[in-house]
Nucleic acid binder design. Structure first.
Length: 280
DNA sequence: TGAATTTGACCCAC
DNA sequence: GTGGGTCAAATTCA
């Protein structure tokens, strides 16, 4: 049985809990990285577990005054656990505590990043649309997406996509929150062709079986649930022939006219692209 | 039939 | 009070 926060729960406290949740998720990410990289860095993993324990302690203290979470939270050392298997569950427990059905929390957009692109492009993650809204003084509606893995993995990543220009088409994508999910989807088949509209920019089509709906220019952008978690590639090296993802089109830079015939390519995550200043 | 999308209502920051 | 972000029931799709 889930508990929810009382109406009177102070918003600052809720924010503090949110921060704890995020920190908790980051620590879990770090733990996963440590596990996958060195494989035997016990002291570093111990440190991560201590961090997780601090989050748990802070959370309990925050709740101790006017909200009895004792019935839900067990004693710190057992509830949040000092073993690697239970730490992710610990974060989820905290998330559940502040997840409130029928009541949403508006995010601060201080960490939002906005990109204007000529095409709608895949960032490698699975998104689920949760809303659409007409915006004042905007010609086109804004589309709201959250990570498909929000529920099962508590991933907080969301993005808003809005067409801002008709001809040439221009889309504005605002991303908020980091992906804390561990799922990396497969890529689609790649069909390489010249763009009819501009031969200087070869068009790469990521084709698959997802039908494009008529009268919906966002249809090719909407992701469907990805269910290939167990065989996700490492180091983002993805075999093209195995790629299965929604259909997207990309434009290549002028001069880049052919693919290496090897059926491998390295795909940069959105973060990598941003870090390297690559601007689509 | 389960999952994704649509859409109207609700809620909150400004 | 208003605009925009989110929720969730209804609808659509595969």
């Amino acid at each position: 049985m889930e508990r929810s926060l009382p109406e009177s729960f102070p918003s600052k406290r809720i924010r503090a809990i949110e921060e704890l949740i995020q920190g908790c998720q980051f620590a879990n990410e770090l733990r996963s990285l440590l596990h996958s990289s060195s494989g035997d860095d016990g002291s570093a993993i111990d440190l991560v577990l201590k961090i997780l324990s601090s989050f748990a302690n802070s959370h309990t203290i925050l709740n101790s005054d006017d909200f009895d979470v004792g019935s839900q939270l067990q004693p710190i050392n057992t509830q949040y656990g000092f073993n690697s298997d239970s730490s992710e569950e610990s974060c989820r427990s905290i998330s559940k505590l502040q997840d409130r059905r029928g009541r949403y929390r508006r995010r601060m957009n201080s960490q939002a990043s906005t990109k204007d692109t000529a095409t709608l492009m895949d960032d490698g993650h699975a998104w689920r649309k949760y809303g659409q809204k007409l915006i004042i003084n905007a010609k086109y509606p804004r589309h709201y997406y959250r990570c498909t893995h929000k529920r099962e993995q508590g991933c907080q990543a969301i993005k808003y996509v809005q067409r801002i220009q008709e001809d040439p088409p221009k889309y504005q994508t605002t991303s908020m929150g980091r992906h804390t999910c561990t799922t990396f989807p497969k890529a689609p088949e790649i069909i390489f062709e010249l763009s009819q509209s501009d031969s200087r920019f070869p068009l790469i089509s990521f084709d698959n079986t997802i039908a494009r709906k008529e009268n919906s220019f966002f249809s090719t952008f909407q992701s469907t649930k990805q269910e290939h978690e167990e065989d996700k590639p490492t180091n983002y090296e993805i075999r093209i022939s195995d790629y299965q993802a929604p259909s997207y089109d990309y434009l290549m830079s002028p001069g880049q006219t052919t693919f290496n015939s090897f059926a491998y390519m390295t795909v940069l995550s959105e973060c990598d692209i941003r870090d390297e200043g690559c601007d689509f």
